[in-house]
């Protein structure tokens, strides 16, 4: 029999062979199996630009701080409508090139937020560009590095026609008077980030989150009798504060202030609701506001706008769910005509 104590050949062979066998069972076979997944029918492949953006994402090793996986537990519900499934990664997790393997986008640490559906949560290109140029310009408490090497500083005179200018507030400029334009890589990276959205499953909603006990209790209450009392402040900080800031003051030169704004304080809330639903691009001195109509329900929009109209010294009447519903219907008919 094997005498491992005296026979070095047997010892090494056995240790090696058993390890290889176990590795095949626990790693190689499951890996082959996981590789067999197919994309979800309406899942969009990455465009050329988005793929290049993914390469920038890998170069800067964004995976060190950002995950891309919605786990099947309740706390991850904020990062996506459903738990991630293997098919979600069909297009993004392919070998990059001869030298580099399929990117580990799932990540292992959330020093920054999960990015599974960052494209839905934050569809504004201007926000992403400013955030990459200096995260603290939009989120003052952020510890994310800034990426100035993805941008160029130019004189206003030498601006080209198709240059993408980033609206950087004065205090974040290195040299006053210069314009900041986004490099091709920055635009590609933002394209990639905007492409990060969860594909809806054909069967409707999928898989449920394992709930946390406390969660069920509070949710049960708010879903049932208290649905009218959504927390506008909380919703605002989740959906709007990234640009308009918690203080409502926005970022000068990038995102307009809501404090004392004529639109916000207008007795008639129609235009405010319209902007939230449809987005807004009427002012060249500010970034484009993306539409939020698909992401927010009528009740949520009502809660948010009511919060805006009653905070930071603003003083305008409450917005009801009915108001929002009416305007949404109105927009729908408008579009159909």
């Amino acid at each position: 029999m094997f005498n491992f104590h005296k026979d070095h050949k047997n010892l090494v062979l056995t240790a090696g062979a058993v390890f290889i066998a176990l590795s095949i069972v626990v790693a190689i076979l499951p890996a082959f199996q996981m590789q067999e997944t197919e994309p979800i029918p309406n899942e969009k492949p990455l465009t050329d630009n988005e793929r290049k953006g993914l390469h920038v994402y890998v170069t800067e090793n964004c995976m060190a701080c950002h995950t891309q996986q919605v786990r099947n537990i309740a706390m991850d519900n904020v990062w996506g409508d459903r738990p991630s499934i293997p098919s979600d990664y069909f297009y993004s997790k392919k070998r990059l090139d001869l030298w580099r393997q399929s990117p580990s986008v799932l990540g292992s640490e959330r020093t920054g937020p999960d990015l599974t559906s960052i494209g839905e949560r934050q569809p504004s290109e201007d926000w992403h560009l400013l955030h990459l140029y200096n995260p603290r310009a939009v989120v003052s408490e952020s510890v994310m590095p800034s990426y100035p090497w993805l941008f160029e500083e130019v004189d206003s005179v030498s601006l080209q026609k198709d240059d993408k200018i980033v609206a950087v507030p004065k205090e974040f400029l290195n040299k006053p008077g210069k314009k900041i334009i986004a490099s091709e890589e920055a635009l590609q990276l933002v394209d990639y980030l905007k492409s990060l959205q969860q594909t809806e499953l054909p069967s409707g909603n999928f898989g449920d989150f394992i709930p946390a006990l406390e969660k069920i209790q509070t949710e049960g209450m708010s879903d049932g009798n208290q649905s009218g009392k959504l927390d506008g402040a909380k919703l605002f900080s989740q959906a709007c504060a990234a640009c308009h800031q918690e203080t409502g003051k926005g970022v000068i030169g990038a995102f307009p202030s809501l404090v004392g704004s004529d639109i916000v304080n207008d007795e008639n809330s129609e235009q405010l609701i319209r902007i939230v639903i449809q987005g807004y691009d009427a002012r060249t001195d500010y970034g484009v506001m993306p539409p939020f109509g698909d992401q927010l329900s009528d009740a949520e929009i009502a809660a948010i706008t009511t919060h805006e109209r009653s905070s930071w010294g603003n003083n305008a009447p409450e917005v009801t769910e009915e108001d929002v519903k009416k305007i949404r219907e109105f927009i729908a008919t408008e579009l159909n005509q």
């Binding site: 890996a31 199996q33 996981m34 590789q35 997944t37 997790k93 070998r95 393997q101 399929s102 799932l106």
Partner: peptide, 12 residues
């Protein structure tokens, strides 16, 4: 590289 596309990479 043979089994490292998609979540195969994650298992590995």
């Amino acid at each position: 590289p043979f089994y490292q596309n998609g979540l195969g990479e994650t298992v590995i």
